[in-house]
Design a protein around this nucleic acid. Structure first.
Length: 881
DNA sequence: CGATCCCGCCACATT
DNA sequence: AATGTGGCGGGATCG
């Protein structure tokens, strides 16, 4: 029958679709599927000619549904039958003509027939779900478009979503490679992990709480958004595919949105996600700007994505009725793996309770591309933020070029953003870790703020461990290596710095303070339904991005009970991965605000909420762990596994101590410094403080075990001046510092997750600091602190981390030493011994600190005062020792 | 009338 | 400059 259509169509020509087909087809497929007829659907008279046509018509008349159904069948059928078609052709042909008459009815194909979902089904029908590995199916967009009788634009919609799930990959212009569902589970797993990091809490929040709350967009929207998230998870994609090459491209919103959307389902306990919640979460804007129109557009896109996912059999439409009424929603009906992932070899949690998994979170904004290549892919976090309009587009897709631009953009945006980083630890190397996004907030005045207060900001550095960032794998490789090496050295070596720490100076302008928080991922918690709800909420709230928090004051939030959270976190951790933490960096704009929002992300913000979150986090061992991990990172050597193992064990030990002692547990809020690079991102460097960040970050953070590491970013330029340094190992001591001396040290580590690869190992960078010999520098800074402390990485961390990640890690950071205000004295650690540094060092920001809670822990530090600007550093170093 | 979401303009990216 | 991509949102259709 179908065939007929085609034929008939041709003659008719009128239909727009047809014409297209013909022309295009010519090139492509005709042969293959001569049959192609399928498209006909659109056309009006579908059936007439067929024998059954009349019957059908009748049916349809009787029931629209039936009609639709029939049509669908037809559509699909063609594909299947295609072979046959030929023959009939001629016959049909004739018929067709006659038929034309029938048009009346057919005329309007009805929108449904043209739906993206239907189109997608047709598209999918053309390819085997599980193609033989041997055959490599390439898809020509033009060809498919013509065959299916649609404009290419529509095919992009489908392909983009499929690409986000790695069912296809782009190999060249107009060419995609069909992979089928072989890797679907892996992809989903990856997304789930990523999703947990990013959205775990959020989802919980929304699902439970949020609903209750209403959100009005205007306001809250922000909150929801955690901010930037990152996007990226994706790229990694299956390694295997190789197609990787293609990957890098832009991250377009559709692709990213699709992944995020899927993540939401995977993270959701109920596996049901309402459109509005999804839209809210996916709207990256941090800004309030979010407006209705934006929301509307987002929803439109979600429908597009949902249609494709529905065709894939991954979700189905449902409605949820809430208090408010019934809302459209989608339920995940695809494979669910959740449970599995959770466990991990690690085993972390159980025992660890005290320190439950820690993870460090790191963040890495980047993802690596999957492929071997190493490129960075975008930062997720960063990206997220900015994205708004123009920027987005621009985002380049390709690996190459655009990046810089973006970065630059990022920078600026970054400010706004908060990035959170997380890392997960997993035993598995394989999995790449994901990073969390970081968020940075700009501080008002930022540039200086830090500086100013401090005279040149010098910070004593402590090294803490390092935080690592996760980078995408490939990317960094080199860099990483370097760093690693450095780190490693550190480990071994000694960190020279310790003792004295040099301070760092940052150029004022460039600095920003960041606060980070940790978060865990949580998995989904269980449902909330229970009484927990309340708690949950709290959690959720916590999660909520700071911004949101800010804005809303959310009294609610306050309510949240910490305790609960704690528990959960732990549980979650265990369950889940454990430890991921996200960091967020925030720049406090103003302290005052801070209390609440300010740092949004981080600490401050939410004060209560976040705090809670933090607490939780803190409470949980995670932090410690994180620290450990970090320390480990240094090099390598240790296997990841180890590290993971170590982690647990370790944590408890040293790391914890540190952590605990300080605030670590708590609130974190560590602050970070961020320096803006003048140039593009590329130049950024981050410094981390040791601690975890407050969980704040947005999102929910809640429990993420991870640690956050604070870090600072230093602009390259800045670095230059600094002696900084890098990793301890490295030591760069060399340089003298120009200015003053600072050494920088920061070690921050970043983790990058590698994409596919693996593991995520965190990497750290060393931290030690470089020292600058000169004390000169230091002094300036704070008197309080003596500089002692150096940090080092903790051995443990190092180990663990180290090995794995080497590559991954990046290192941007230079180690820095931080001083901890509080306990400065103690500082002196042995370098190695110290390992835990983590939490130790960090900068506090007043604002962020603001939170009472958070601080409380820190209190020691003292308050940072308020001025936002000023921040002190603290190191928590190990402390007490 | 709100939920869906097709359609295709047009900006941006790539060639 | 041409062509590939794909963001985006008007407005049509569905329910």
């Amino acid at each position: 029958e179908n065939i007929f259509d085609r034929s008939r169509m041709a003659p008719k020509t009128p239909v727009k679709n047809e014409p297209v087909d013909l022309s295009k087809q010519k090139g492509c497929t005709p042969e293959r599927n001569p049959i192609t007829p399928v498209k006909p659907v659109d056309r009006p008279q579908p059936d007439p000619w067929t024998p059954t046509a009349n019957l059908k018509m009748l049916v349809s008349a009787a029931s629209p549904d039936m009609r639709d159904r029939e049509k669908k069948k037809e559509l699909f059928r063609p594909i299947e039958n295609s072979e046959q078609s030929d023959t009939p052709d001629s016959l049909q042909y004739v018929v067709v003509d006659d038929c034309t008459v029938d048009e009346f009815e057919k005329q309007r194909p009805s929108r449904k027939q043209k739906s993206l979902g239907l189109l997608c089904q047709k598209f999918l029908a053309r390819y085997p779900s599980y193609p033989l590995s041997t055959e490599k199916t390439t898809i020509s967009l033009d060809e498919v478009a013509s065959i299916l009788g649609v404009e290419r634009r529509r095919i992009y919609d489908i392909v983009n979503v499929l690409e986000s799930l790695h069912l296809v990959s782009r190999v060249a212009k107009n060419q995609y490679c069909w992979h089928g569902r072989h890797n679907l589970n892996q992809t989903l797993k990856t997304l789930q992990e990523a999703g947990e990091l990013q959205y775990g809490e959020l989802m919980t929040f929304f699902q439970h709480k949020e609903q209750d709350l209403e959100y009005k967009f205007g306001e809250r929207k922000k909150e929801t958004i955690p901010d930037s998230q990152d996007r990226p998870l994706l790229d990694f994609s299956e390694p295997d595919c190789t197609s990787a090459s293609a990957n890098s491209r832009k991250d377009k919103s559709l692709r990213i949105m699709s992944q995020k959307f899927v993540m939401l389902f995977l993270v959701s306990k109920t596996k049901i996600v309402t459109l509005d919640i999804a839209a809210k979460i996916l709207i990256e804007e941090t800004q309030d700007t979010v407006d209705h129109s934006k929301f509307k557009t987002k929803v439109r896109r979600l429908y597009d994505i949902a249609n494709v996912l529905t065709s894939l059999g991954l979700i189905k439409k449902v409605h949820v009725t809430e208090e408010r009424g019934r809302k459209p929603a989608f339920k995940w009906i695809g494979p669910v793996e959740s449970p599995g992932k959770i466990d991990e070899p690690r085993g972390h949690s159980p025992t660890s309770d005290p320190l439950p998994g820690v993870q460090r979170g790191v963040c890495a904004p980047y993802q690596i591309c999957a492929t071997g290549k190493q490129r960075f892919t975008r930062h997720a976090s960063f990206n997220g933020t900015q994205p708004r309009e123009g920027a987005r587009r621009k985002v380049s897709s390709e690996p190459n070029s655009p990046r810089q631009e973006r970065q630059d953009a990022y920078c600026s945006k970054m400010i706004n953003l908060a990035a959170v980083c997380r890392q997960k630890i997993e035993e598995d190397t394989r999995n790449p870790r994901i990073t969390s996004p970081l968020s940075l907030l700009p501080v008002p005045g930022d540039s200086e703020f830090c500086v100013n207060p401090l005279p040149q900001a010098v910070f004593p550095v402590v090294q803490a461990d390092v935080p690592s960032l996760s980078l995408p794998n490939g990317i960094s490789s080199q860099a990483l290596h370097i760093s690693t090496s450095a780190t490693s050295k550190t480990e071994n070596g000694k960190p020279t710095l310790l003792p004295n720490q040099p301070f760092l100076c940052f150029p004022s302008s460039s600095l920003f303070m960041l606060c980070g928080g940790l978060q865990e991922n949580n998995l989904r918690e269980t449902l909330p339904t229970t009484g927990d709800a309340g708690n949950r909420r709290a959690e959720a709230q916590a999660t909520v991005p700071a911004a949101a928090c800010q804005k809303r004051s959310s009294p609610k939030c306050a309510s949240p009970s910490a305790p609960v959270d704690d528990e959960e976190p732990a549980a979650k951790k265990q369950t889940m991965e454990q430890s991921d933490v996200a960091l967020s960096l925030v720049v406090p704009k103003k302290p005052f605000e801070s209390p609440k929002a300010e740092s949004n992300p981080g600490s401050g913000c939410t004060s209560a909420e976040h705090l809670k979150a933090f607490h939780l986090d803190l409470a949980s061992p995670a932090a410690p762990e994180a620290a450990d991990k970090e320390s480990t990172k240094p090099l390598d050597s240790q296997e990841q596994e180890k590290w993971s193992q170590n982690k647990d064990p370790d944590k408890p030990s040293p790391g914890k101590e540190h952590i605990s002692k300080e605030n670590a547990n708590q609130p974190f809020l560590p602050q970070y410094l961020y320096v803006q690079p003048t140039a593009g991102l590329s130049s950024f460097n981050f410094l981390f403080s040791a601690n975890q960040a407050p969980g704040a970050i947005n999102l929910g953070a809640s429990q993420l075990p991870s640690l956050s590491v604070p870090y600072v970013v230093v602009p390259s330029a800045a670095l230059a001046s600094f002696p900084v340094v890098c990793s301890p190992t490295i030591t760069s001591p060399l340089s003298p510092v120009p200015d003053g001396s600072f050494s920088a040290a920061a070690a921050a580590s970043m983790n990058f997750s590698m994409s596919g690869l693996a593991s995520t190992t965190p990497v750290f960078i060393g931290t030690t600091a470089a020292v600058t010999p000169q004390a000169s520098c230091a002094p300036s800074v704070e008197p309080q602190q003596p500089a002692h402390h150096a940090l080092h990485l903790s051995p443990v961390l190092v180990r663990s981390c180290g090995a794995v990640k080497l590559d991954s890690s990046m290192c941007m950071g230079h180690p820095v030493t931080l001083l901890k205000l509080q306990q400065p004295s103690s500082a002196p650690l042995t370098p190695k011994s110290i390992r835990p540094a983590h939490h130790e060092a960090f900068f506090e920001t007043p604002g962020s600190l603001g939170d009472p809670v958070a601080w409380k822990k820190n209190e020691g530090n003292q308050t940072r005062n308020a001025s936002s600007v000023q921040r002190r550093l603290e190191i928590s170093s190990t402390s007490p020792d």
